[in-house]
């Protein structure tokens, strides 16, 4: 599904290298987690994959089902099936959440040569999905993320993911800022989407999300590289011992 080879990235505006040869391969239907100290480059990796401006790829590649992602516009990557749940979801005053969702769903359908959803059909689907995430109708009417609490913003990200049905989902610290119940809702939302054809890359600092979303593979990122890869037990090790041991072990 997603294959990242030797990815090197620096900031466009200054000579600061952030990713230093990332290698990562995620198969169809797999759930991978990335953990790592603050500032190790996890969000940067997710931004570069989804096409945000301001970064320069100096080496390496990233493909989704064999298609080179790094050449595409952000919207093309979305249409190809990539989705990023933002660590900091963006507030957009003046754009209604519902309008935004419908425009997004229909833009992707159009890009894939599918028919647009009718307003009625769309409404039905959105209402049902919002309900399972405990997002009330009033929140759907409000401008995108404006005045949403931290937890509401994160649930709104998962709602977008559920509506867009991407094949490669990247979740950047979707668990941070969530209370225990909301985390369960988000995890249930993710688990409901798990399928053979859909893969997940879950960036997190805490084991507690991984208690709900069981990862197949756990990676540790440090200083812009994946320094260790293992099974779910690796997350438990981080939880109890922190990163010090792992980092000294890999030098």
């Amino acid at each position: 599904m997603l294959e990242i080879n030797n990815l090197h990235v620096k900031l466009e505006e200054e000579d600061k290298v952030i990713l230093n040869g990332v290698d990562l391969k995620i198969g169809a239907g797999e759930v991978h987690a990335i953990m790592g100290p603050n500032g190790s480059g996890k969000s940067t990796l997710s931004y570069v994959l989804s096409g945000r401006d301001g970064y320069e790829v100096t080496e390496g590649s990233a493909t989704l089902d064999g298609q080179e992602l790094l050449e595409m516009e952000p919207e093309e990557r979305a249409a190809a099936g990539l989705f990023l749940a933002f660590q900091y979801p963006v507030e957009i005053p003046g754009v209604g959440n519902m309008t935004f969702l419908r425009t997004a769903v229909n833009a992707q359908r159009k890009a894939r040569g599918e028919e647009e959803l009718s307003a009625g059909d769309f409404l039905k689907v959105v209402r049902a999905k919002a309900k399972t995430l405990k997002i009330d109708a009033e929140m759907l009417k409000r401008p995108v993320n404006v005045g949403f609490s931290g937890g509401e913003k994160k649930r709104n990200e998962i709602l977008q993911m559920a509506m867009l049905e991407p094949r490669m989902c990247i979740l950047d610290e979707t668990d941070s800022g969530l209370d225990v119940d909301a985390m369960k809702l988000v995890a249930d939302g993710v688990n409901a989407l798990r399928s053979e054809g859909r893969s997940f890359l879950v960036i997190t600092h805490y084991q507690r999300l991984l208690d709900h979303i069981h990862p197949d593979v756990v990676h540790i990122m440090a200083a812009g590289r994946i320094v260790k890869t293992g099974g779910p037990e690796l997350a438990l090790e981080v939880e109890t011992n922190g990163y010090a041991d792992i980092l000294s072990e890999v030098g």
Partner: peptide
């Protein structure tokens, strides 16, 4: 930032 957010959801620029 808002522009990128919208594009990342599939809206053409």
């Amino acid at each position: 930032t808002a522009l990128f957010y919208l594009q990342s959801r599939g809206l053409p620029r």
